[in-house]
Simulated assay, not measured.
Amino acid sequence: MTFPATDTVVTYPDGDLASTGTVLHVEPLEEGRSAVVLDRTAFHPVDPVWPDQPADAGTLAVDGRDYAIVDAVVGATDGSALYVGNAPVRTGTEGWAFVVCHLVDDASGIEPGATATVTVDGELRRALSAGHTACHLASLALNDAFAPLWTKDVPVDGRGRPNFDQLAITSSRILPEGSLDEYRIGKSLRKKGFAAAELAGRIEEATEAIDATLAGWVAAAAPIAIVRDGDGHGLGERRRWRAELPEGVVEIPCGGTHLRSLAELASVTVALELSEADGALGLTMRTTAQPA
C-alpha cells in the first residue's frame, strides 16, 4: 500500500465549489467507512487541531456513481501510515504530507488512479463562509472595545489593539451565518493587566461599541481575500484572511473559507454574556451575520 507523498492541492480558499482530481489512496476505517484521498479537492475539511469550521457537505463522483461525503477531516502521512484526523504532528510539519480525507460510507468502486469529481453544497458553504468572516470581524471589534481595560502591554492584533481574543479564547465554533466564541478570564489574564473587575459594568457599553464598529465596516463593503504565504496550493501551506477595512488592511491567520466582500452582508451583530466558574469569568460572544 502506498501513501500520498505531497499535500492535497486545495482550491476552496479560492471559493471553488467543484473540482476534479485523481484518487491517490482509499483507507478503510471503522464501521465500514473509508477515507478517500485525492490529489486535489475543493472540499473544506475539519482540522482536529482547531476544529472551528465544520466540513463542507457534498458528493464525490467516480465512474458515473455519486458517493455522499459524510465528513471530511485533515489527514497526515509520513509514508508509513495514514492518520485520519489524529495526526501526531501539527499541519505543516516537515517530512509529512497533509491531505484531505473525504469520508464515505461505502467506497466500493473507488480505486486509486480513478478520476473523481467533487461537488460542494454551495448554500452551506456560503453560510459557513459568512459565519467565519463575521467571526473574524467580531474578534477585531471585541479587541477594540476591550482596549481600555488593559493596564499593561500585551500582544496586539492586526489593527494594533490588545489581542484579548487571542489571549483569552478557549473555543470557537463557526456556524451557518454566525459563530460562537468562548473566552476565559482567569488569574493569568489578570496578571497580564486585564481589568476583569470592570468588565461586568461595561458589557452593555462594549456590545454597543462592537455593533457600531461592525456596522461601519459592513457599510464600507470592504473587500475580503485569502492570501497564501507560499507559491503553492497545498493543504499544509499557511494562509491568511485579509480585509481592507476603512482604517487599513488587517490580516488573521486562517485555514477556513470566507466571503469575498462585506457587501455580501446586510449586518453583523454580537451578543455578549458573562458567567463564572472555578474562580474565573467566562465570556460568550454570539455573532450573527445577516446576508445582504
Score class of each variant (00 low, 15 high):
A5H: 09
T8E: 00
T11G: 03
P13I: 02
D14R: 15
S19L: 03
S19P: 03
V23D: 07
L24N: 04
V26Y: 07
E27A: 14
E27P: 11
L29S: 09
L29D: 07
E31T: 13
G32C: 08
S34N: 11
S34E: 04
A35R: 04
V36P: 12
V37I: 15
L38Q: 10
R40P: 02
V46I: 15
D47H: 08
W50T: 09
Q53G: 08
A55E: 11
A57R: 14
A57H: 13
G58Q: 09
T59I: 07
L60H: 03
L60E: 10
D63E: 14
G64W: 05
R65A: 14
Y67R: 09
I69F: 05
V73I: 10
V74G: 03
G75N: 06
D78I: 05
S80A: 13
A81V: 13
Y83R: 14
V84G: 04
G85R: 12
G85F: 13
V89T: 12
R90M: 13
G92Q: 01
G92H: 00
E94W: 05
G95Q: 00
W96V: 00
W96P: 00
A97N: 03
F98M: 02
H102A: 03
H102I: 00
D105A: 15
S108V: 13
E111A: 14
A114Y: 00
T115S: 15
T115M: 09
A116P: 05
T117P: 05
V118K: 02
T119D: 09
G122K: 04
G122W: 02
L124Q: 07
R125D: 09
L128F: 03
A130Q: 03
T133H: 03
T133P: 02
T133C: 07
S139D: 13
A141Q: 02
N143C: 12
A145S: 12
T151S: 12
V154I: 13
V156N: 07
R159T: 10
R161P: 00
P162W: 01
P162I: 04
Q166R: 15
A168H: 01
I169G: 06
S171G: 15
R173N: 08
I174D: 00
L175I: 02
E177S: 03
S179M: 01
L180Y: 13
D181F: 05
E182S: 13
E182T: 12
Y183D: 06
K192T: 08
K192P: 01
A206G: 03
T207V: 09
T207P: 05
A215H: 04
W217M: 09
W217Q: 06
A219C: 05
A222F: 08
A225G: 06
A225K: 15
I226D: 06
I226C: 13
R228P: 07
D231G: 09
D231R: 14
G234H: 01
G236W: 01
G236V: 04
E237M: 09
R239F: 01
R240H: 14
W241N: 04
E244K: 10
L245G: 11
V249T: 15
V250S: 11
V250D: 04
P253S: 14
R260Y: 08
L262C: 12
E264T: 09
L265H: 05
S267I: 04
T269D: 06
T269P: 02
T269N: 05
E273L: 10
L274W: 03
E276W: 13
G282I: 07
R286T: 14
R286N: 12
T288M: 06
A289E: 00
Q290W: 09
Q290G: 10
P291E: 10
